[in-house]
Design a protein around this nucleic acid. Structure first.
Length: 548
DNA sequence: ACCTCCCACCCTGCATAGAT
DNA sequence: ATCTATGCAGGGTGGGAGGT
């Protein structure tokens, strides 16, 4: 038998005292002073003028007070008193002084026997089940939208309490709520046996078709996982020409029991926002999602974590509502390196080179926006005019304190005009790939995947950028990238018709320092934006470009 | 009681832009 | 060249909840 809760005992005694049925007094019990209760005679406390009827009513009232209300009635009263706000199971347990863990089965059984509405909600770091009695329930529209379940599993529409119980039978695992045999007799046990316990959060009827089955049952989750991974390989995997990898679906790990867990209400709402945005835009950067959700939830005391977003995206991928791809982007300051960016696209979106180009432009402008924004915070400048569509380019030559260096570079032949540099570099690479010398064949490693097809890229050639740059003549390097090294020495190398690959490693490192790498990256980025290059990753994920 | 998972928070390292 | 501010990503941590 369970321990009678002290809190509940206190409540009852207070009630009895308030009604003048008992009084509290101190008595010596086993040598210790203890608070005791003394029963007052209800009849003798009343005036002798009262008629029998009144006395009879009072007696009934007293009996009502003396007879302890069933716990379930008290719970019902508490939920009823909570009105339209509802109350969490945790709060109920706190009020009654009972343990949530031990009473959970009893509570959920009760809620569904009385046809109450239960909704899971995120409370700080933990989840909580909030309950309403049906007449007080007024669902939040958005939540209603995103939590629709199969009609057959929608508790609101199922007056048959046996069915309701049968759903909870699965959630409580112990099967103590009702006789399982009865469920089998009614033929609902098999149907509902696959219902995830977390499905109980979603007993609302909504209208959104998009997220109808966001909450999955165990079987469907597993099957979706399989189908996602296979479709990724077969249908959605980008051809070698695309610089992307599909994000692998979330691994459920060794413990499958959590595989079926659905998203919480908060996360479902976040998923809804992502899907809404994806409707309007062809793709979204993961970083954008992060900022967007934080912006939406700025009223909340907590900020959505990136890993939470990862989980949401994984879930959406499992349900084939989105497709996550990793796009490798050239690092603006270092042409031979890439930075990965996860991009969310609609599953129906075909991954064309144009789309990747668009994504890379977005990544670039997003990074520009982020950093210019952070930089603007440092400045105290207030209202500056905004030039829409105009982006400030990196300055290659720092005028202050480096005039002499800039002069040295110009003396070595450095061309200030970026477009001229871009044209020079493009011409060089074009010549490289179309010459038939043996060392060039190594650069033009193989014909690109599009060759021979009827796509507009049929003349594309794949090449290793870093290797191609190393074949650059020193003279061209001095024009396009520039160097502050001694003019006479550089002229000597030019006259010898040396290439960068001919230089000793130390000298190459000196020429291709951080600044030079940045300047070269800038020129390469211009060519990429002009669609002259198509950035790609191929051949053991080496950094490659396609020359159009 | 223990384990696992979810979640938010924190720390660290890196990249970038602007100021000095 | 160095410093500062900002943002992002990866990894670690601890609290809470649910399952065994």
């Amino acid at each position: 038998m369970s321990r009678f809760p002290y809190c509940l005992c206190n409540q009852i005694s207070q009630r009895l005292k308030a009604h003048g049925i008992v009084e509290q007094f101190d008595a010596k019990v086993n040598g210790k002073i203890e608070a005791c209760l003394r029963l007052l005679d209800p009849i003798t406390t009343e005036s002798g003028n009262e008629d029998k009827k009144l006395n009879s009513g009072k007696i009934c009232q007293v009996i009502d007070q003396l007879v302890e209300l069933p716990m379930e009635h008290q719970i019902y009263d508490i939920i009823d008193a909570a009105g339209s706000c509802g109350i969490t199971l945790k709060e109920i347990c706190e009020r009654l002084g009972i343990e949530l863990k031990k009473s959970h089965i009893r509570l959920v059984n009760l809620c569904y026997r009385f046809g109450m509405k239960v909704q899971e909600e995120q409370c700080l770091k933990s989840k909580a089940n909030r309950v309403w009695i049906s007449k007080n329930f007024n669902p939040e529209p958005e939540v209603g939208l995103i939590c629709k379940l199969d009609e057959n599993k929608t508790l609101n529409n199922v007056p048959d309490s046996s069915k309701i119980l049968s759903e909870f039978e699965t959630s409580t695992t112990s099967g103590k709520l009702d006789d399982p045999a009865k469920l089998e007799d009614r033929g609902v046990g098999a149907e509902l046996s696959c219902v995830s316990p977390r499905n109980t959060e979603s007993n609302f009827v909504g209208t959104s078709a998009d997220l109808q089955d966001l909450v999955l049952d165990r079987r469907s989750t597993v099957s979706h996982c399989k189908s996602v991974s296979s479709s990724v390989e077969a249908d959605n995997a980008p051809s070698g020409a695309f610089p992307s990898d599909m994000l692998k679906p979330f691994s459920t790990g060794p413990n499958q029991r959590y595989a079926s867990l659905s998203l919480s209400v908060d996360n479902t709402r976040r998923a809804n926002r992502i899907l809404e945005r994806l409707k309007d835009e062809r793709f979204i950067l993961k970083s954008e999602i992060n900022r967007c959700l934080i912006c939406f939830e700025k009223d909340k005391s907590t900020k959505v974590d990136r890993k939470t977003i990862d989980r949401i995206l994984t879930k959406l991928q499992e349900q084939e509502k989105v497709k996550c791809i990793t796009v490798h982007s050239p690092v603006i300051s270092e042409y031979s390196r890439t930075k990965d960016c996860v991009v969310v696209v609609h599953p129906s979106m075909s991954l064309t080179p144009e789309l990747f180009d668009e994504i890379q432009d977005r990544i670039r402008s997003f990074n520009c926006y982020i950093h210019s924004k952070s930089a603007s915070h440092q400045k105290n400048d207030l209202l500056l005019p905004v030039m829409e569509g105009i982006q400030k380019n990196q300055s290659v030559i720092v005028p202050d304190g480096q005039a002499s260096k800039a002069e040295a570079m110009r003396a070595n032949g450095f061309v200030l005009a970026k477009m001229i540099c871009a044209k020079l570099l493009h011409s060089f690479i074009w010549d490289c790939l179309h010459r038939s010398t043996s060392h060039i064949d190594v650069l033009s490693s193989k014909k690109c995947a599009f060759e021979g097809t009827d796509t507009p890229h049929s003349s594309s050639k794949l090449f290793f950028l870093e290797a191609t740059i190393k074949e650059m003549p020193v003279e061209l390097f001095l024009k396009v990238v520039g160097s502050t090294k001694n003019y006479e020495e550089m002229i000597g190398k030019c006259k010898m018709d040396l290439h960068l690959s001919d230089l000793p490693p130390e000298e190459y490192k000196f020429l291709m320092d951080a600044q030079a790498t940045g300047r070269l990256s800038l020129v390469i980025d211009i060519l990429r934006r002009l669609k002259v290059f198509l950035f790609t990753v191929e051949l053991n994920l080496s950094l490659c470009f396609k020359l159009e």
